[in-house]
Nucleic acid binder design. Structure first.
Lengths: 188, 188
DNA sequence: CCTGCATGTTTGACCAGTCAGTCATTTGAA
DNA sequence: TTCAAATGACTGACTGGTCAAACATGCAGG
């Protein structure tokens, strides 16, 4: 058998794409990504059918990683406030500790090339978080609001907080606390 | 004197750019914008030095319009809650009534081509709103939070709300109310 | 009223550069 | 030797921006 199509290469391309897209946005040339991955540009297209395919895969990958990190070490026995605080801290920690991944994800979030089915696929990594949120708000003033609206608020606040922490990292903890308190006040 | 460089043409290009950029994003070819404006592609570059110049002008234009609309009919004598509700309603009304302008603005907001000085220039249309927000939160639990963080929360929530209203226009009023209540709860 | 000229504007074919994706050729493990 | 995998020069499509020619307009003098 010939040298196998290694997953290592795939991952190298994904990692390179993360870096390049974080720096240059979705418009970055595939040739640059291939080069950064130590791969010929022709090879890139044996691992990903099209550029759009690469972007979609990367989106799912990053989003899933974010979801997984946020529920890691989930405090099962605790109250809702502590559980949500845990998830909140996890989201912010990953985003601030992996600025390139976050930045790439930010670009992918608004990219037209990333199709609906990819967005749905990525959502399934957030099942635990979704149900936590549902439970947390069901007795508060936002119980009647559609879930999507509330989820949009949450991720919007998270996004704004991360943006702010990256600008002012010294007060990261304070900003995290401020944003969580604001979020909790919003819930009820 | 020969036919003057009409502002009408400039505006036509701006309007066309709004439409095309809303539909295709920042990457839309200038030729398409020129065509939609009923102008040759060469002419476009007599009104705007470069594509980036056009994007910056358009950004300032749209953002200023949004700011102006939000403070239109500002209820000077009323309480802070009513004042903020007025601004909130104004922001959401403009955004939902002008989906193309909003969509174009959304693209421009994240465009690298739009430089810092343009963003600053656009901010001055929001002076009134800024001071209102400062007054509104100065006695609440967010009084210690940096202004930028709070402003980011606000515009993030507004953005999420608009997105949601456009998906579910029948319940626009309910969503507007929900989001304002959430915002007000956040303030204190 | 017409004609010719000067001034300034509009035009669109064109240019140079860029990009995603292809494919004939090479490589190297089995 | 065999053959899947890797390569990178190449292609065709497209883009922002240019520029020489065409055109509109106002005016002076016949």
């Amino acid at each position: 058998m010939a040298r196998p199509r290694s997953d290592d290469r795939r991952n190298a391309i994904m990692a390179a794409a993360t870096k390049i897209i974080a720096a240059q946005g979705i418009g970055a040339p595939t040739a640059l990504i291939a080069k950064a991955a130590g791969v010929s540009n022709g090879s890139l297209f044996t691992y990903f059918e099209t550029k759009a395919d690469l972007l979609n895969q990367l989106y799912i990958d990053l989003k899933s990683e974010l979801g997984a990190v946020a529920v890691d070490g989930f405090p099962v026995g605790e109250g809702q406030r502590e559980q949500l605080a845990h998830v909140w801290a996890g989201l912010l920690r990953w985003s601030t500790a992996n600025p390139e991944k976050r930045r790439a994800l930010k670009h992918l979030n608004v990219a037209e090339e990333v199709v609906t089915s990819s967005r749905e696929a990525a959502r399934c990594g957030f099942g635990e978080i979704t149900s936590l949120i549902e439970r947390a708000r069901e007795n508060g003033p936002m119980h009647a609001a559609p879930y999507g609206l509330f989820a949009a608020f949450m991720s919007a606040i998270a996004e704004a907080t991360v943006e702010f922490i990256l600008q002012d990292p010294e007060n990261a903890d304070a900003h995290r606390q401020t944003s969580f308190d604001a979020l909790w006040r919003m819930i009820g």
